[in-house]
């Protein structure tokens, strides 16, 4: 059966998506850790089904300024991966790569921004590789694109994708951070599959 709306999904579907997220994030975190030479902690992913107006609250409200990065995925699965990096993460990256302190978004230059794109690229590749080898589906990723702006405006990108089919957004929310960090707020890596792709995923994994 093909689901048309995310409201039709049951707890079993949510479990499957959580597991997919878990494996994907595990791989992405391993890449990040070896790349950065730092320990990386991950949390159990959350599959969230939220109204359009609730999403921005997760990253500190619609007008909170954040660094977002978008990677489109296509092939057998269509959708997007969206990162929202928290300041602790940005500071760590700045420190390891450039030996600099991070003070404000305005001060980031092109070189520094492209370092974040590269990290996103590596993490997304490992995430998608894991998904792909588990499901046997072919998945492509685009070049990352960075945007520093209001959280609400950044998160409206996945919302609009889902607005075509319903009133809510489904995303697999994986949070990660560097080991030993005192900051409770972590960076988020959000996988947003399109409705058709969700059906394909479930079918491939034998979940009805």
């Amino acid at each position: 059966m093909a689901y048309k709306n995310i409201d039709e999904l049951n707890p079993m579907h949510v479990d499957v998506l959580t597991e997919l997220g878990n494996i994907g994030t595990g791989n992405a975190a391993t890449s990040l850790a070896s790349f950065m030479g730092r320990e990386v902690d991950i949390n159990v992913p959350n599959v969230r089904i939220l109204g359009f107006n609730e999403i921005a609250e997760y990253v500190g409200g619609p007008e909170n300024i954040v660094m977002g990065m978008l990677i489109k995925i296509d092939g057998d699965i269509n959708g997007m991966i969206l990162y929202v990096f928290d300041n602790d993460f940005i500071e760590n990256v700045m420190n390891v790569f450039f030996g600099k302190k991070f003070s404000s978004f305005e001060e980031l230059d092109e070189m520094e921004k492209s370092a974040f794109c590269e990290i996103g690229n590596i993490m997304a590749s490992s995430y998608v590789n894991a998904l792909s080898s588990m499901t046997g589906l072919f998945i492509n990723i685009s070049i990352p694109s960075l945007c520093i702006d209001m959280a609400g405006a950044i998160l409206s990108v996945p919302s609009i994708e889902f607005a075509r089919v319903g009133n809510k957004v489904l995303f697999i929310d994986d949070s990660f951070g560097f080991g030993g960090s005192s900051d409770k707020v972590k960076s988020n890596m959000i996988l947003v599959p399109e409705m058709d792709s969700l059906n394909k995923l479930f079918e491939k994994l034998g979940v009805m």
Binding site: D149, M150, G152, A153, I154, S156, V157, I160
Partner: peptide
């Protein structure tokens, strides 16, 4: 004296 507000328009 009402003011109507909407936050963080992206592509909207």
């Amino acid at each position: 004296p009402g003011v109507l507000a909407t936050y963080a328009l992206g592509s909207c």
